[in-house]
Simulated scan of single mutants.
Amino acid sequence: MFDTMTLTKIVGGFCGTFLVFLLGGWAAEAIYSGGEGGHGEGEEQAYVIPVEDATGGAAAEEGPTPEELTAQFQEAFAAADPAAGEGEFRPCSACHSLAQGENRTGPSLYGVVDRPVDSIEGFDYSGAIEKVNDVWTPEHLNLFITNPKQYAPGTKMNFNGIRDVQDRANLIAYLATNPGG
């Protein structure tokens, strides 16, 4: 079976591998922490990533307020093209149906415009949207599909949103025509 020499080679192989990992960790720590002594208080970081403006950058990324989004949307919705919205619906169709009563991963979107929130029988809603609004008005739909996770924290909808206001307006105009019913 195993003789002493084979067992010694196996144990030596494990010890050698462990030693290589220890030396690699020590070398990496020396490179990235500035070497000599580890992570003492008051030590300067060895490699610093420069950031232009850490405070102003976050505020700039937040984007427009809900009031600004609504004003932009109302202007775009007045000129919305439902035919163009049909193309915007294609990614939505992976999880939503336009047929009345046909739920998929998401609820049916048949008649969603001006429909009460969480009103489809037999669909297990997260309840996050109920905390935000009561009826799916075009304005509420616009805010939701801009960024679902920001609009209704805790929603089950796993979608990053549609950034272009005219694309959102076209989609909502398409949904308002109650296609698929």
Rank of each mutant, 00 (worst) to 15 (best):
T70L: 12
S93T: 05
E67Y: 02
A176D: 13
E61M: 10
G37S: 09
R104C: 00
I31M: 13
D164V: 05
G24A: 14
K156W: 02
E44M: 03
D124E: 14
G35Q: 06
P179Y: 00
K149M: 12
K9Y: 10
E68P: 09
F2R: 02
F144C: 01
W26Q: 12
G85C: 08
D164A: 03
G34Y: 10
I129P: 00
F89S: 09
L143T: 06
E36L: 13
A76P: 04
G106P: 05
Q45W: 11
G106I: 01
V51I: 13
F144T: 00
V132M: 02
R168H: 09
R104Q: 08
L22W: 10
D164S: 06
P179T: 07
L141K: 05
G180M: 10
S93N: 10
E68T: 04
F89K: 05
L23I: 07
A128R: 01
K9H: 07
R104W: 00
A78H: 08
L171N: 02
D3W: 02
H39E: 13
G154K: 02
H140S: 10
Q45P: 11
C15M: 11
I172K: 11
N133A: 10
E88W: 06
A80G: 08
H140L: 04
T70M: 09
F89R: 12
D3P: 12
A28N: 01
A54P: 00
K156C: 01
R163I: 02
A27T: 15
Q150K: 13
N103Y: 04
T8R: 02
N142F: 01
G85D: 03
G85P: 05
A152C: 11
V113C: 08
Y32P: 01
A128D: 05
G12C: 07
A176K: 11
I129S: 00
E29M: 09
E62F: 09
P116W: 00
M1N: 13
P179G: 04
E62Q: 11
V48T: 14
G37D: 03
I120R: 13
F14G: 12
A152W: 08
Q74M: 02
P66W: 06
G122D: 10
A60D: 14
G57P: 11
I162C: 01
V113P: 05
W26D: 11
